[in-house]
Design a protein around this nucleic acid. Structure first.
Lengths: 373, 373
DNA sequence: ACGGTAGATGTTAGCGCTAGCACACTTTCC
DNA sequence: GGAAAGTGTGCTAGCGCTAACATCTACCGT
């Protein structure tokens, strides 16, 4: 295994000491003995310092900060004053080691380039806001091996729950997760037998619906572009939904106009040009994500192609840009913020003890017919 | 102080145990005594278990994993086998408490909605990849109070260095940072007296250059739109640069066409309409970020306005969309990935002991004249 | 042969914090 | 009025891991 790159996003709650501006920490160093062999030379203020300053035991100081209701108001006030005067910053590392209770949950996203994932994040952060759990985020770059390493890292850091994207994961990921016995939420799709719970929608059905919409509009010579299906089970499901719709209506599904594409506006533009050169009779292109579709719409404008006159274009996701394009893009709307929120809430419920295993939350989808079809 | 929402992105290095697929952990639980009063009922495999299984002392097992060169190859192999067989996952929390050495650095960004910040992230993650430090990311939502709380949280978590966005910070942030005595890198601007080091460019000069470009092209009735300057020192500096350029060329700087705007394509569109209604004679609009400018270009297309015929539009940042618009957007290019990389490298150097304080790295800017002006 | 040095492993003592219990010292109740 | 049930605080003993030192073995040169 090699170096792994991940990323984490955390949300946290921290009681802040009001800050006294003068520097007092060293002046107030207690004159008492330090245990010999004390290794910390850096002298960061500890809870013991605070306790001494407040004239209470360390455990009382700890309680005053973490379980204020168990401490007499007057004692608590003394501790709080000591905290402020010493500019005490708790050592959360030590705290969570001692209590061995998770203080964070993790989410692993395949990318941060696409705003669809940051929207999910937004929803999750919102739901976690008042929970007391931080959210740590990993970026798997659509690589199952990186995902597995991230899972391992997060387990090593003691997260209480993990949110994954998609239904397909490395065997190692699954065994790590099973072994760790922590709640897992899969997002963006609805596996029949989720690892823990899942929140998503039927990518197959959504894609089928969009393909159906195109066929209904009268398009007959349709092309399809998605991300590489090998690394992306959502893209794979969308391609299946598209293929099924074509088959159900007796249309040919030409493999030469069923493309896999990298990500980005430029890639969408390239796919458009490629398809029109491979098969000029194409009358509609269904892109399995809006960034590609937007790239194509913008390219059409540059090339002087009329949309949908010369070629219709449909997308998937309903990103902000979709509605601002000229013409505005037909797409499939997914409530990404709701998805993130639901996933986070499932994790919180699981951490609170609610039965969780096997729950499947369908957030649905909506075909938004705008002007590119 | 209140609940704080942040976010973190981490990059990490973790030696992975090769995984044996059958579940062996419980079967291999050592038959030996457990110290009485052991509080952990969950039975996660510890390093002590591994050591026992390998027939060595815990410290040797620790060394075999963390300082392999200090351990005889044969012993190391035994430990590694034990790790694999027991599916041992190290407890990083405990490790970093014991060693009290930082294992992460933090970056605080004002937003994840704008791809310019995720680009910086990309650069930073790249530089940190092989360093052994994780990167933790906080999202301040352009709020200095949230930033202060994030700083506090990160200090509580023991990060070794912090990267901030912009030059302006709450007094509390500054005092926390001074007190913590850890390296701080400020990004996106070049304060004369940085808290630690800084990496950025002159927002004033870049903005001046773009305004100069517009004036040079013959535009005389120029408007300016930026984010709210009160919460964004970069926007403030850009507005000053714009104003200076106008003044230097004897042009009027009409306050009624100097706008502050929320973020997003829709906001850019609204700003365009607002300016053209307030002052129909406006011949150019300089947007201090590309998302607003792009929203305006797209809106112009919808409204049937010719760009630059009816109104010229300039942006700032050079996001991907800028080059794909029709017409492609004139903007200021910033090497954001390079910025993130340089900032991360500064942190690493500081952690390695290189003198650091006061270093100012100018990454420059480049006016990209495309077709909207 | 000897101390000397390097290499490999173990012993001890915490890192800073918090469960779990123990211990006053109330307050409440029949 | 005495047991029962709080309330507030402190002590002890770790959480799982690792720094620092101590050992304990080769192996070295002179």
């Amino acid at each position: 295994m090699r170096v792994d790159v991940g990323s984490s996003l955390s949300m946290s709650r921290l009681e802040g000491a009001s800050v006294i501006v003068e520097t007092v920490a060293s002046a107030l160093e207690p004159p008492f003995q330090r245990p010999r062999g004390n290794r910390r030379g850096h002298g960061r203020t500890t809870l013991a310092d605070v306790a001494r300053h407040a004239g209470v035991s360390p455990i009382t100081a700890s309680r005053a900060l973490n379980k204020p209701l168990l401490v007499a108001p007057e004692t608590r006030a003394r501790v709080e004053r000591a905290v402020a005067e010493l500019r005490y910053i708790p050592n959360i590392i030590a705290g969570s080691l001692a209590s061995s209770s998770p203080s964070a949950v993790a989410a692993i996203l395949p990318s941060l380039d696409n705003s669809i994932f940051t929207d999910v994040l937004k929803g999750a952060v919102g739901a976690l806001e008042r929970s007391g759990y931080r959210l740590v985020l990993g970026n798997s770059h659509f690589d199952p091996a990186v995902e597995a390493t991230l899972v391992e890292t997060f387990l090593a850091h003691g997260v209480g729950a993990i949110m994954l994207t998609g239904a397909r994961h490395a065997p190692q990921t699954q065994s790590l997760l099973t072994n760790a016995r922590i709640p897992v939420v899969q997002t963006w799709s609805l596996p029949r037998r989720p690892l823990g719970a899942c929140v998503g929608f039927s990518n197959f059905a959504a894609s089928y619906a969009m393909a159906h919409h195109l066929i209904e509009r009268g398009y007959r010579d349709i092309a399809f572009v998605s991300a590489a299906v090998a690394r992306n089970d959502r893209a794979a499901a969308r391609r299946r939904g598209y293929a099924k719709a074509l088959a159900d209506h007796g249309l040919v599904n030409d493999p030469s106009t069923t493309l896999e594409s990298p990500f980005g506006l430029a890639a969408g533009a390239a796919a458009l040009e490629r398809i029109l050169s491979v098969r000029p009779s194409t009358d509609a292109i269904f892109f399995a994500n809006d960034v590609l579709a937007s790239g194509a719409v913008l390219a059409a404008l540059r090339l002087g192609l009329r949309v949908p006159g010369d070629v219709a274009i449909a997308g998937f996701d309903d990103i902000e840009l979709a509605g601002h394009l000229m013409p505005p893009l037909t797409t499939v709307r997914i409530d990404r913020i709701g998805l993130g929120k639901a996933a986070a809430e499932l994790m919180l419920e699981a951490l609170a003890g609610t039965p969780f295993k096997g729950r499947r939350v369908d957030i649905g989808f909506e075909v938004i017919a705008r002007a590119t079809t």
